[in-house]
């Protein structure tokens, strides 16, 4: 069980570091979504099931949707040919 938890924690750190380096914003948001899902599993292993329910609904659902809606509003979701719309040319 300890090994499992350490793997999940390492995955969390890897997700956070990759969010720092990912250029395309949609990918960063999706990685953040998987970060939240792993966090929900960790709440369960910390014997806090109510936190797991909340984090699963909030992190994977509502926060991600708000981020993706905001990206849609700033036209970061389109793949137009002239330039890849990453963090530096939005």
């Amino acid at each position: 069980m300890t090994f499992f938890e350490i793997m999940l924690l390492l995955f969390l750190i890897a997700c956070a570091i990759s969010i720092f380096f990912i250029k395309r914003l949609v990918n960063a948001v999706v990685v953040f979504m998987s970060y939240s899902a792993i966090m929900a599993v960790l709440w369960l292993s910390l014997e806090s099931p109510d936190l797991a329910i909340t984090e699963a609904a909030v992190g994977c659902g509502i926060t991600t949707l708000l981020f993706i809606l905001a990206l849609k509003k700033v036209n970061a979701l389109k793949e137009d040919g002239e330039a890849d719309r990453d963090e530096h040319n939005i």
Binding site: F20, L25, V29, F32, F67
Partner: peptide, 14 residues
Amino acid sequence: IQRNLIKKIIGMNI
């Protein structure tokens, strides 16, 4: 460090 506001907000969430 990040220059993009969306990235900054994700960092705040982390």
